[in-house]
């Protein structure tokens, strides 16, 4: 198999799509959760009883990683990798790679952005623990765009028919 054959192979392209969905969304989430986690530890070192609230805010940027995994599953399911009979043409593989891009790219950036908002929201609960809901709302606004990307990825995958 030559290099050209590999990169035009449908299965390879589809698996690549699944991978970048997981890798980028996951990386973004890891960073976002990390940022929020640092802020949370800062808060907990002074106010240990706000652990629960801080944990909610820290978990918020984690959703992008889950979305990435979801899309990866759907792609792998579509090409039949999970059931064992893989049948996918180059074009179909390329389309599935394209379908993975929204959640990969948007997931990466939105998770980091959400991590920063969460960290700031931890600043809110440091001062006013009763305002947790508002902090969550701010972080959730960022989530919207991750969901939109997830939706786009889903629609594309659903719309494609893989015949092989």
């Amino acid at each position: 198999m030559t290099f050209t054959e590999i990169i035009t192979n449908g299965t390879f392209l589809a698996v690549l799509g699944a991978s970048i969905a997981v890798v980028f969304a996951g990386m973004g989430s890891a960073k976002g959760v990390g940022i929020a986690g640092e802020a949370a530890s800062g808060l907990i070192s002074e106010e240990p009883d706000r652990f629960g609230q801080a944990l909610i805010l820290q978990a918020l940027p984690g959703t992008q990683g889950i979305y990435g995994l979801l899309i990866a599953f759907m792609i792998l399911n579509k090409i039949g990798l999970l059931s064992g009979n893989i049948a996918v043409s180059s074009l179909e593989g390329a389309a599935l790679l394209g379908a993975a891009l929204p959640i990969a790219v948007v997931g990466y950036f939105s998770a980091i952005a959400q991590g920063r908002v969460s960290a700031s929201a931890i600043g809110i609960i440091a001062k006013k623990p009763e305002e947790l809901a508002k902090g969550i709302t701010f972080a959730a606004m960022v989530e919207t765009f991750a969901i939109l990307a997830l939706l786009a990825s889903l629609l594309i995958i659903n719309g494609l028919t893989v015949v092989g």
């Binding site: 940022i35 640092e38 802020a39 949370a40 530890s41 800062g42 808060l43 070192s45 002074e46 106010e47 920063r116 960290a119 931890i122 600043g123 440091a126 001062k127």
Partner: peptide, 15 residues
Amino acid sequence: LDYTYAVARLRALEN
């Protein structure tokens, strides 16, 4: 971003 921990901790201390 290196100061995220510090800022959150100070935010609590501000109280």
